[in-house]
Design a protein around this nucleic acid. Sequence first.
DNA 1: CGGTGATTTGATTTTTCTCAATCCGGGTGG
DNA 2: CCACCCGGATTGAGAAAAATCAAATCACCG
Lengths: 230, 230
Amino acid sequence: MATVTALRTSATHSITPKPQLLIGAPTAFDSTLLLQHVAPTRRRIRSGEFVHAGLVKSTIASSDGREKVTGFQMRGALLGLEAMAAGTHVCDVVALEDGEIWEFEFARFMAACARVPALQHAFTATMAAEILAERSWMLTLGTLGAEQRVAALLLDFGTRLEALGFSASRFVLRMTRAEIGSFLGLQLETVTRAMTQLDDRGLISVQRREIDIRDADGLRALIGAPSRSH
Amino acid sequence: MATVTALRTSATHSITPKPQLLIGAPTAFDSTLLLQHVAPTRRRIRSGEFVHAGLVKSTIASSDGREKVTGFQMRGALLGLEAMAAGTHVCDVVALEDGEIWEFEFARFMAACARVPALQHAFTATMAAEILAERSWMLTLGTLGAEQRVAALLLDFGTRLEALGFSASRFVLRMTRAEIGSFLGLQLETVTRAMTQLDDRGLISVQRREIDIRDADGLRALIGAPSRSH
DNA sequence: CGGTGATTTGATTTTTCTCAATCCGGGTGG
DNA sequence: CCACCCGGATTGAGAAAAATCAAATCACCG
């Protein structure tokens, strides 16, 4: 069962208010290490509830109602980093598939980190990787056009799924066009059109949510040559 | 003298390859605490070199030459977080003003963190705040139009300058229109036009790099109502 | 006082958004 | 079993936003 690593201190209507850490059977993060030093609370979650496994989306919202998907996380991802600023709510995590999570108290986790250097390192490394990935997406969203953004997302999904032991070229999108658009800073229609164009070029094959990457190098080449200069 | 907190492990042509921490006299970060536990190397830097004080810009670049400003940091900001992933280069830091920095070795810093809980907490809190701010910008860039993005940036500058003891309404931009555009995901001409529009509306007064915020509430109201729905 | 880089402004093109209609598949209830 | 329904996806046409190309202006510096 796919699981997700999540760290939170609080959330609007999803997580209990007390600081806690939600964690799973990660790839990027060494869960064995974690389980040895921080007693987890295992919890099964249904799709539609908050935080779980397989695939989740993180969203951020502003007071005036604007909302944006900030990322799609798969098993092994570290979530809720931002919540370390005590008491500050930053984003929600919503399950896109059924799955399972483990839950930890943040304070206990930090204490364990202090005791166990290896855990500290694992935590630091995972966190750094997340920040790195986020920065990379900022670059993508800031410099590439719609078609290129979609191409980048599909390649990213492929890469991450492959790391989890699945096919990098054939997969099913677990989110709607609107969610993809929110993440990429595009309208859902623009996402659809971009996918259609990629299909027309023979780079991918789209059938609603079923994706078949036919020419990964072609997609990469598409991204390599930016349409905008910024 | 304004200074900047920076944490790095490596960089392209700027910082020495060995893991190190660059840090200054911060507001957000408790430097006193840090100085007590991690011996700093003081270093004066000239504008045009990497990492310094007063104001710096962080940039990220991809292999194909795309580049984007990921943020403008003032005294007290924590830089180079992402570099904690050992050996990974993520961004460059370029000085926009003359100033001063202090430099620490990353390993020594982490050791100090382990010994001193207060330092650990300060580090964690600062880091979380940085991530939080970054997320907030992602939302802004993903949901607002050009004029609103510029308004948000000006308000942000004002807020941060005020926290450092300067005027929140009158200040001089230290960066070019192109750099602003890169950060906001806009062309420099679009930035100029947005500023002109804000001026025409009477919300601000622009004179090249001199900014006078005449109606901060008006700017905030402008941002409150999104132009795009995403 | 000319030169250079930055900024501003204008005209035009491109991209993306917006609005609207249609299509498609899965699920439901008769 | 089938007609219907509904959310999501697709497609089309027109409007709006921003990029692009081009030119003029400005400030500063040697």
